[in-house]
Design a protein around this nucleic acid. Structure first.
Lengths: 97, 97
DNA sequence: TAATTATATAAGAATATTATTATATAATTA
DNA sequence: TAATTATATAATAATATTCTTATATAATTA
C-alpha cells in the first residue's frame, strides 16, 4: 500500500460515526473496550470490529493489561486531523446564509 | 445534521481514492470536469457522482463558465486536513520497523 | 434552430461495509 | 481446574456505496 492509499485509509477509518466516537473518547483518555461499551451504544462485537479498523489504520493502539486491553490514540497527529476537520466545518457553517 | 455528523461526512467524503484524487488535482489548480476526466481514469458519470459527494460535503465548489463548470477547493482548511493526514501517515511509516 | 459539448441524473447491477448472532480465546479468579 | 470476564473472530444477513449504462439538461456554436 502506497502513501496515498494509506492516507485514504485513515480518512475512511475516521469517516464513520461509531469509529469517530471511539476516537473522540480515546482522545479524552485511554480506556478499555468495556468502558467504551458503556459510552457507546453498540454491541461488543461490533465495537470490536470497528476497533480493528482503527487499529489497522494506525489510529489507535491497544495494550493488554490483565483481562482488559487499554486502547489509546497512536499519536498526536490524529488530534490535529480532527481539529482541522472541525475547523473546516465551523468555517463552512459560518459561511452559509 | 449536527457538527459531529458533518465532520464525519467530510472525512468520509475524503476517504475514497477517486474523490481524494479529485481533491488533490483541484488543490493544484481549479479545473473543469472534462480536465479531471483526462487526469482520472473514470467514466464521466462516475466522476460526476463523486463530485456531487464532495460538493455536498462542502469540500469543493463549482462555478459555471460557459459550457464548463470550473471546480475548485472551497476553502484552505481542506489543504490542512490533508496535510495533517499526510503527516500522520509519514509518522506512522517512520515508526514501524 | 439543429447539432454539439459539458455535465448531471436516474435506475439498477455489482460490490463493499456494517451489524448481528454465535462461538472462540486468553487472562483471571474462585 | 472450573467458572468468569474481557475481547476477538467467523459467518452471514442487512444495508450502503460504487459503478455502469442510458438518458436528460443547459450552454454554445454552426
Amino acid at each position: 500500500m502506497n502513501k496515498e492509499e494509506m492516507i485514504v485509509k485513515v480518512l475512511k477509518a475516521l469517516g464513520h460515526p461509531i469509529r469517530f466516537k471511539i476516537v473522540k473518547f480515546l482522545l479524552i483518555e485511554p480506556q478499555c473496550v468495556c468502558k467504551l461499551n458503556e459510552n457507546i451504544e453498540f454491541s461488543q462485537s461490533n465495537l470490536s470490529q470497528h476497533i480493528k479498523i482503527l487499529k489497522d489504520a494506525g489510529i489507535i493502539k491497544g495494550e493488554k493489561q490483565g483481562l482488559n486491553i487499554e486502547y489509546s490514540i497512536a499519536n498526536d497527529n490524529v488530534k490535529h486531523i480532527i481539529n482541522m476537520t472541525e475547523k473546516f466545518v465551523e468555517y463552512y457553517l459560518n459561511n452559509i446564509k
